[in-house]
Amino acid sequence: MSEPFYTDKAQVRAAFERAATLYDSAAVLQREVSDRMAERLDYIKVAPPVILDAGSGTGYGAAALKKRYPHARIVELDLAHSMLRASREKHKDGAGLLSWLFQKSPWQVCADVERLPLADASVDMIWSNLAIQWVNVPDSVFAEFRRVLKPDGLLMFSTLGPDTLFELRQAFAGIDGATHVNQFIDMHDLGDALLSAGFATPVMDMEKIVLTYDDARGVMQDLKAIGAHNVTAGRRKGLFGKHAWQTVVDHYEARRRDGKLPATYEVVYGHAWRGSPKPKGNTLPDGRQVIDFVKPGDKPR
Protein backbone atom coordinates (compact mmCIF):
# COMPACT_ATOMS: atom_id res chain seq x y z
CA MET A 1 0.00 0.00 0.00
CA SER A 2 1.76 3.13 -1.25
CA GLU A 3 -1.06 5.66 -0.92
CA PRO A 4 -2.75 6.85 2.30
CA PHE A 5 -6.23 6.45 0.72
CA TYR A 6 -5.64 2.79 -0.24
CA THR A 7 -7.78 0.37 1.72
CA ASP A 8 -6.11 -2.12 4.04
CA LYS A 9 -7.33 -5.55 2.89
CA ALA A 10 -6.82 -7.14 6.31
CA GLN A 11 -8.90 -4.39 7.91
CA VAL A 12 -11.60 -4.80 5.23
CA ARG A 13 -11.85 -8.51 6.02
CA ALA A 14 -11.95 -7.89 9.79
CA ALA A 15 -14.63 -5.20 9.42
CA PHE A 16 -16.93 -7.49 7.45
CA GLU A 17 -16.31 -10.42 9.76
CA ARG A 18 -17.55 -8.27 12.65
CA ALA A 19 -20.45 -6.76 10.70
CA ALA A 20 -22.21 -9.95 9.60
CA THR A 21 -24.71 -10.13 12.47
CA LEU A 22 -25.87 -6.51 12.02
CA TYR A 23 -25.40 -6.26 8.27
CA ASP A 24 -28.95 -7.00 7.10
CA SER A 25 -30.49 -4.46 9.47
CA ALA A 26 -28.39 -1.63 7.99
CA ALA A 27 -27.77 -2.70 4.36
CA VAL A 28 -30.58 -0.61 2.86
CA LEU A 29 -28.37 0.80 0.11
CA GLN A 30 -26.92 -2.60 -0.79
CA ARG A 31 -30.37 -4.14 -1.25
CA GLU A 32 -31.65 -1.17 -3.24
CA VAL A 33 -28.66 -1.20 -5.58
CA SER A 34 -28.94 -4.98 -5.99
CA ASP A 35 -32.58 -4.59 -7.03
CA ARG A 36 -31.77 -1.80 -9.48
CA MET A 37 -28.92 -3.81 -10.96
CA ALA A 38 -31.22 -6.83 -11.34
CA GLU A 39 -33.66 -4.70 -13.33
CA ARG A 40 -30.94 -4.24 -15.93
CA LEU A 41 -30.97 -7.99 -16.52
CA ASP A 42 -34.47 -7.61 -17.97
CA TYR A 43 -32.80 -6.19 -21.09
CA ILE A 44 -30.01 -8.76 -21.35
CA LYS A 45 -31.08 -12.16 -22.63
CA VAL A 46 -28.86 -14.72 -20.96
CA ALA A 47 -29.40 -18.11 -19.33
CA PRO A 48 -26.11 -18.73 -17.48
CA PRO A 49 -25.60 -22.28 -16.12
CA VAL A 50 -22.96 -21.09 -13.58
CA ILE A 51 -23.05 -17.67 -11.88
CA LEU A 52 -20.38 -16.26 -9.57
CA ASP A 53 -21.66 -13.76 -6.99
CA ALA A 54 -18.39 -11.97 -6.24
CA GLY A 55 -18.68 -10.23 -2.87
CA SER A 56 -21.92 -12.01 -1.99
CA GLY A 57 -22.31 -10.73 1.56
CA THR A 58 -25.23 -12.35 3.38
CA GLY A 59 -26.78 -13.75 0.20
CA TYR A 60 -29.39 -11.17 -0.85
CA GLY A 61 -28.17 -11.02 -4.45
CA ALA A 62 -27.65 -14.77 -4.69
CA ALA A 63 -31.28 -15.38 -3.67
CA ALA A 64 -32.52 -12.98 -6.35
CA LEU A 65 -30.30 -14.60 -8.98
CA LYS A 66 -31.58 -18.05 -8.02
CA LYS A 67 -35.15 -16.86 -8.45
CA ARG A 68 -34.38 -15.35 -11.85
CA TYR A 69 -32.27 -18.31 -13.04
CA PRO A 70 -33.72 -21.34 -11.18
CA HIS A 71 -31.58 -23.87 -13.07
CA ALA A 72 -28.29 -22.06 -12.54
CA ARG A 73 -25.57 -23.09 -10.13
CA ILE A 74 -24.82 -20.07 -7.92
CA VAL A 75 -21.36 -19.68 -6.38
CA GLU A 76 -21.25 -17.24 -3.46
CA LEU A 77 -17.80 -15.78 -2.88
CA ASP A 78 -16.92 -13.39 -0.08
CA LEU A 79 -13.82 -12.22 1.77
CA ALA A 80 -15.49 -12.73 5.16
CA HIS A 81 -16.42 -16.22 6.35
CA SER A 82 -19.05 -14.88 8.74
CA MET A 83 -20.93 -13.32 5.81
CA LEU A 84 -21.08 -16.69 4.05
CA ARG A 85 -22.19 -18.37 7.27
CA ALA A 86 -25.03 -15.84 7.67
CA SER A 87 -26.13 -16.53 4.09
CA ARG A 88 -26.05 -20.28 4.66
CA GLU A 89 -28.23 -19.97 7.75
CA LYS A 90 -30.79 -17.93 5.80
CA HIS A 91 -30.90 -20.56 3.06
CA LYS A 92 -31.51 -23.26 5.66
CA ASP A 93 -34.18 -21.26 7.48
CA GLY A 94 -35.99 -20.42 4.26
CA ALA A 95 -36.02 -23.92 2.78
CA GLY A 96 -35.93 -26.16 5.86
CA LEU A 97 -32.86 -28.23 6.67
CA LEU A 98 -33.76 -31.35 4.68
CA SER A 99 -34.81 -29.52 1.52
CA TRP A 100 -31.69 -27.31 1.80
CA LEU A 101 -29.51 -30.43 1.91
CA PHE A 102 -31.07 -31.92 -1.22
CA GLN A 103 -31.78 -28.86 -3.34
CA LYS A 104 -29.28 -27.14 -5.63
CA SER A 105 -28.10 -24.82 -2.88
CA PRO A 106 -25.36 -22.24 -3.56
CA TRP A 107 -21.75 -23.25 -3.32
CA GLN A 108 -19.70 -21.00 -1.07
CA VAL A 109 -16.08 -19.89 -1.35
CA CYS A 110 -14.26 -17.65 1.13
CA ALA A 111 -11.68 -15.82 -0.98
CA ASP A 112 -10.38 -12.52 -2.32
CA VAL A 113 -11.85 -11.25 -5.62
CA GLU A 114 -8.32 -10.34 -6.70
CA ARG A 115 -7.22 -14.00 -6.34
CA LEU A 116 -10.15 -16.16 -7.39
CA PRO A 117 -9.60 -19.87 -6.58
CA LEU A 118 -11.53 -20.84 -9.72
CA ALA A 119 -10.45 -22.49 -12.96
CA ASP A 120 -10.03 -20.54 -16.18
CA ALA A 121 -13.27 -20.19 -18.18
CA SER A 122 -15.35 -21.86 -15.47
CA VAL A 123 -18.32 -19.48 -15.01
CA ASP A 124 -20.88 -18.05 -17.43
CA MET A 125 -21.73 -14.86 -15.55
CA ILE A 126 -20.19 -12.76 -12.79
CA TRP A 127 -22.44 -10.62 -10.59
CA SER A 128 -20.75 -8.23 -8.16
CA ASN A 129 -22.82 -5.78 -6.13
CA LEU A 130 -20.98 -3.03 -4.22
CA ALA A 131 -17.83 -5.08 -3.65
CA ILE A 132 -15.04 -3.95 -5.95
CA GLN A 133 -14.85 -0.49 -4.35
CA TRP A 134 -12.65 -2.18 -1.73
CA VAL A 135 -10.07 -2.97 -4.42
CA ASN A 136 -7.43 -0.27 -4.75
CA VAL A 137 -6.53 -0.87 -8.41
CA PRO A 138 -9.30 -2.32 -10.63
CA ASP A 139 -6.93 -3.92 -13.17
CA SER A 140 -6.23 -6.98 -11.05
CA VAL A 141 -9.86 -7.79 -10.25
CA PHE A 142 -11.00 -7.26 -13.86
CA ALA A 143 -8.19 -9.50 -15.08
CA GLU A 144 -9.35 -12.21 -12.67
CA PHE A 145 -12.97 -11.78 -13.69
CA ARG A 146 -12.06 -12.17 -17.35
CA ARG A 147 -9.88 -15.19 -16.63
CA VAL A 148 -12.66 -17.20 -14.97
CA LEU A 149 -15.41 -16.16 -17.40
CA LYS A 150 -16.19 -18.42 -20.32
CA PRO A 151 -16.03 -16.97 -23.85
CA ASP A 152 -18.97 -14.57 -24.32
CA GLY A 153 -19.59 -14.63 -20.55
CA LEU A 154 -21.18 -11.59 -18.90
CA LEU A 155 -19.77 -9.38 -16.14
CA MET A 156 -22.30 -7.19 -14.32
CA PHE A 157 -21.24 -5.07 -11.37
CA SER A 158 -21.98 -2.03 -9.25
CA THR A 159 -19.54 0.01 -7.22
CA LEU A 160 -19.18 3.45 -5.63
CA GLY A 161 -17.84 6.58 -7.30
CA PRO A 162 -15.72 9.43 -5.91
CA ASP A 163 -18.66 11.66 -4.88
CA THR A 164 -19.78 9.04 -2.35
CA LEU A 165 -20.16 10.51 1.16
CA PHE A 166 -18.82 13.87 0.02
CA GLU A 167 -20.76 15.54 2.85
CA LEU A 168 -18.90 13.48 5.45
CA ARG A 169 -15.56 13.97 3.71
CA GLN A 170 -16.00 17.74 3.68
CA ALA A 171 -17.09 17.74 7.32
CA PHE A 172 -13.74 16.12 8.22
CA ALA A 173 -11.71 18.44 5.96
CA GLY A 174 -8.98 20.34 7.81
CA ILE A 175 -9.36 18.42 11.07
CA ASP A 176 -5.97 16.72 10.70
CA GLY A 177 -3.79 15.12 8.04
CA ALA A 178 -5.43 11.69 8.23
CA THR A 179 -7.91 10.14 5.80
CA HIS A 180 -11.36 9.78 7.36
CA VAL A 181 -13.54 8.59 4.48
CA ASN A 182 -12.83 5.85 1.95
CA GLN A 183 -12.07 7.08 -1.58
CA PHE A 184 -13.44 5.52 -4.75
CA ILE A 185 -12.56 5.22 -8.43
CA ASP A 186 -14.10 7.34 -11.18
CA MET A 187 -16.54 5.68 -13.63
CA HIS A 188 -14.45 6.58 -16.67
CA ASP A 189 -11.33 5.03 -15.15
CA LEU A 190 -13.30 1.84 -14.51
CA GLY A 191 -14.40 1.76 -18.15
CA ASP A 192 -10.80 2.20 -19.29
CA ALA A 193 -9.73 -0.62 -16.95
CA LEU A 194 -12.36 -2.94 -18.45
CA LEU A 195 -11.04 -2.28 -21.95
CA SER A 196 -7.46 -2.70 -20.78
CA ALA A 197 -8.37 -6.09 -19.27
CA GLY A 198 -9.77 -7.23 -22.62
CA PHE A 199 -13.51 -6.91 -22.02
CA ALA A 200 -15.73 -6.11 -24.99
CA THR A 201 -18.42 -3.42 -25.34
CA PRO A 202 -18.42 -2.12 -21.75
CA VAL A 203 -21.46 -0.07 -20.74
CA MET A 204 -21.19 2.30 -17.77
CA ASP A 205 -23.73 4.56 -16.10
CA MET A 206 -24.14 6.32 -12.78
CA GLU A 207 -26.81 7.63 -10.42
CA LYS A 208 -26.81 9.26 -7.01
CA ILE A 209 -28.79 7.85 -4.10
CA VAL A 210 -29.24 9.99 -0.99
CA LEU A 211 -29.95 8.43 2.40
CA THR A 212 -31.06 10.68 5.26
CA TYR A 213 -30.24 10.55 8.97
CA ASP A 214 -31.23 12.26 12.18
CA ASP A 215 -27.63 13.01 13.13
CA ALA A 216 -24.01 12.50 12.06
CA ARG A 217 -23.52 9.68 14.54
CA GLY A 218 -26.26 7.72 12.75
CA VAL A 219 -24.28 7.92 9.51
CA MET A 220 -21.17 6.57 11.21
CA GLN A 221 -23.08 3.80 12.98
CA ASP A 222 -24.63 2.60 9.71
CA LEU A 223 -21.23 2.57 8.02
CA LYS A 224 -19.83 0.48 10.85
CA ALA A 225 -22.83 -1.88 10.83
CA ILE A 226 -22.26 -2.75 7.16
CA GLY A 227 -18.47 -2.94 7.54
CA ALA A 228 -17.95 0.17 5.41
CA HIS A 229 -16.30 2.52 7.89
CA ASN A 230 -12.85 4.00 7.25
CA VAL A 231 -10.26 1.30 6.49
CA THR A 232 -7.76 3.42 4.57
CA ALA A 233 -4.04 3.07 5.20
CA GLY A 234 -3.86 6.74 6.19
CA ARG A 235 -6.66 6.56 8.76
CA ARG A 236 -6.17 8.05 12.21
CA LYS A 237 -4.74 5.41 14.55
CA GLY A 238 -5.55 7.09 17.86
CA LEU A 239 -8.83 8.16 19.47
CA PHE A 240 -10.72 11.11 18.04
CA GLY A 241 -10.96 13.99 20.55
CA LYS A 242 -14.30 15.33 21.75
CA HIS A 243 -13.55 18.83 20.45
CA ALA A 244 -12.52 17.55 17.02
CA TRP A 245 -15.64 15.39 16.75
CA GLN A 246 -17.84 18.35 17.67
CA THR A 247 -16.19 20.35 14.89
CA VAL A 248 -17.05 17.57 12.40
CA VAL A 249 -20.65 17.51 13.65
CA ASP A 250 -20.97 21.29 13.33
CA HIS A 251 -19.67 21.17 9.75
CA TYR A 252 -22.08 18.38 8.86
CA GLU A 253 -25.02 20.17 10.55
CA ALA A 254 -24.68 22.99 8.01
CA ARG A 255 -26.09 20.55 5.43
CA ARG A 256 -29.27 19.74 7.36
CA ARG A 257 -32.39 20.07 5.21
CA ASP A 258 -35.98 19.41 6.24
CA GLY A 259 -34.75 18.16 9.60
CA LYS A 260 -32.44 15.49 8.13
CA LEU A 261 -28.76 15.10 7.29
CA PRO A 262 -27.99 13.74 3.80
CA ALA A 263 -25.48 11.01 2.95
CA THR A 264 -24.94 10.82 -0.81
CA TYR A 265 -23.78 7.68 -2.61
CA GLU A 266 -22.56 7.86 -6.20
CA VAL A 267 -23.49 4.43 -7.53
CA VAL A 268 -21.72 3.25 -10.67
CA TYR A 269 -23.13 0.39 -12.75
CA GLY A 270 -21.22 -1.49 -15.41
CA HIS A 271 -21.50 -4.54 -17.60
CA ALA A 272 -19.26 -6.01 -20.27
CA TRP A 273 -18.67 -9.25 -22.15
CA ARG A 274 -15.73 -11.61 -21.95
CA GLY A 275 -15.68 -11.91 -25.73
CA SER A 276 -14.76 -14.91 -27.84
CA PRO A 277 -11.16 -15.95 -28.51
CA LYS A 278 -9.75 -14.32 -31.63
CA PRO A 279 -9.32 -16.70 -34.56
CA LYS A 280 -5.78 -17.74 -35.29
CA GLY A 281 -4.08 -16.60 -38.45
CA ASN A 282 -4.55 -13.42 -40.48
CA THR A 283 -7.74 -11.41 -39.92
CA LEU A 284 -9.29 -8.40 -41.60
CA PRO A 285 -10.21 -5.29 -39.56
CA ASP A 286 -13.85 -6.44 -39.43
CA GLY A 287 -12.81 -9.75 -37.84
CA ARG A 288 -13.11 -12.01 -40.92
CA GLN A 289 -10.33 -14.55 -41.19
CA VAL A 290 -8.01 -14.60 -44.19
CA ILE A 291 -7.15 -18.08 -45.46
CA ASP A 292 -4.07 -18.50 -47.64
CA PHE A 293 -4.26 -21.14 -50.36
CA VAL A 294 -0.75 -22.44 -51.06
CA LYS A 295 0.22 -24.41 -54.13
CA PRO A 296 2.43 -27.49 -53.69
CA GLY A 297 6.04 -26.40 -53.43
CA ASP A 298 5.23 -22.77 -52.51
CA LYS A 299 6.21 -21.35 -49.18
CA PRO A 300 3.31 -20.10 -47.08
CA ARG A 301 3.23 -16.35 -46.51
Rank of each mutant, 00 (worst) to 15 (best):
Q221L: 15
V219F: 03
F184A: 11
E207V: 08
D186K: 13
D222H: 12
T201I: 00
F172E: 04
V181R: 09
A171K: 09
F184K: 05
L239G: 00
G241W: 01
F199M: 12
V210R: 09
F240H: 02
A228G: 08
G191L: 05
T232K: 08
K237C: 01
D189V: 14
A216I: 14
L239R: 14
P202N: 00
I226Q: 02
D176Q: 10
D189P: 00
I226D: 01
I185P: 09
D215F: 05
A197Q: 07
D176R: 08
H180K: 10
A225V: 07
G218A: 15
G227W: 08
N230E: 05
F184P: 11
T232I: 12
D189F: 00
R217F: 15
R236I: 08
N230F: 10
H229P: 01
D189N: 10
G218H: 15
D176C: 06
L190Y: 13
Y213I: 13
L190R: 01
A178V: 01
A200I: 10
D205Y: 01
G177A: 04
D176V: 05
A200H: 08
A193K: 13
Q183L: 12
I175R: 07
A216D: 02
K242T: 12
T201V: 02
A225G: 01
A228V: 05
Y213P: 06
V219M: 12
G191I: 07
V231F: 03
T212F: 12
S196Q: 13
A193N: 06
A216F: 06
L223P: 07
L239W: 08
G218E: 14
Y213C: 11
M187N: 02
A171W: 03
F240T: 15
G174D: 04
G234W: 02
Q221R: 15
M204T: 10
G227S: 04
T201D: 14
G174T: 03
E207K: 03
G198C: 12
R217V: 15
A228I: 08
D186S: 08
M220Y: 02
H180S: 10
G174Y: 01
G174A: 07
R217S: 14
D205C: 01
H188F: 08
D192E: 07
A228L: 13
V181P: 09
A228P: 03
G227T: 09
D205I: 00
A171S: 11
Y213F: 15
D189H: 11
A228F: 01
L211P: 02
A197S: 10
Q221E: 10
I185E: 03
A197V: 02
T212S: 12
A225Y: 07
A233C: 12
